[in-house]
């Protein structure tokens, strides 16, 4: 009986220590990124390449997801409003739910899936085929050369993609309003204008900025830590995607509290 307890204790202790060590290593990677930021910024070409990869190449996916997000928001609002709230308010409900939550979070989740996975797989493969060692051996700092451009690109592109997503989602909602809810364009737009607050938009974009950092750092961290061959790359990819999605949602909660309680007070 005591042996069983001891084993259990050892297992829990090891797991906890691993967890703490992991958080520490991620913090060190983030710290290293800031330390190499100055020199990394000079590699403008690398940053532009990553912006294309993270931002431009995600456009189609973001387009489709946002269009249907807006459409679903309109259908659901129509259903919930029935006989309770006049439909003339539907525009503002769609607008605010999209720019505060749906736009930034859904964009981060799908870009996290696409980009987080590709960063982890690329860097993981580079790790197991000695390409990262080769950079070190050539006196080229891998954090400066690989992590900084990806992080900067993600920090810039996530807010940009979110603006796109917001716009397209609003269009999606408008199409549903027009075709099935019998709400005119004029009513839709007026409602949006009446209840539009700049701070709502800002809060979404600030969140998107943080989500960009999470996605890039998680992809880079698990990519760098890859061990073994193809199996290791697979594990790294999965961990990068899962951890970035979970962290996006957790930080969404934290940021919502911080932003709306302390910064954009009602």
């Amino acid at each position: 009986m005591t042996e069983w307890l001891e084993d259990g204790y050892d297992y829990l202790r090891d797991k906890m220590l691993d967890g703490i060590a992991e958080v520490g290593r991620i913090a060190m990677l983030v710290g290293d990124t800031f330390r190499k930021l100055g020199r990394g910024l000079r590699s403008f070409g690398l940053i532009v390449d990553q912006m294309d990869h993270i931002g431009v190449q995600s456009l189609m996916l973001v387009f489709i997801v946002s269009l249907f997000t807006g459409a679903v928001a309109a259908v659901q609002a129509g259903y919930q409003f029935a006989n309770v709230v006049p439909l003339k308010f539907i525009g503002s409900v769609i607008l605010r739910s999209v720019i505060i939550e749906l736009g930034p979070v859904l964009t981060a989740l799908i870009v996290g899936g696409r980009v987080g996975a590709s960063i982890a797989a690329e860097l993981g493969t580079m790790r197991v085929t000695e390409q990262i060692d080769a950079l070190d051996a050539m006196a080229i700092n891998p954090v400066r050369y690989l992590v900084v451009p990806r992080v900067i690109a993600a920090l810039v592109m996530l807010p940009v993609l979110t603006i796109m997503a917001n716009t397209i989602a609003i269009v999606g909602g408008w199409i549903v309003c027009l075709t099935t809810l019998d709400v005119s364009t004029h009513t839709y737009v007026t409602s949006m204008k009446t209840f539009f607050f700049m701070k709502d938009l800002w809060s979404g974009l600030i969140k998107a900025f943080f989500f960009g950092g999470i996605i890039a750092w998680m992809g880079c961290y698990y990519g760098f830590r890859t061990e073994g061959g193809a199996e290791g790359v697979g594990i790294a990819t999965t961990r990068a995607v899962v951890s970035s999605c979970v962290l996006v949602l957790i930080s969404d909660y934290v940021l919502a509290n911080v932003l709306f309680r302390f910064i954009f007070t009602p």
Binding site: E122, M126, T129, E130, Q131, D133, A134, D136, A137, M138, A139, I140
Partner: peptide, 27 residues
């Protein structure tokens, strides 16, 4: 110190996102 070294890795460790010319010219 590393700049005084050239290293040939077992697999070559070429960057597969770059062309041969870009690889050799990188350092």
């Amino acid at each position: 110190v590393r700049k005084r070294f050239g290293v040939l890795f077992q697999s070559g460790a070429l960057f597969d996102s770059m062309t041969v010319g870009e690889n050799v010219g990188l350092p």
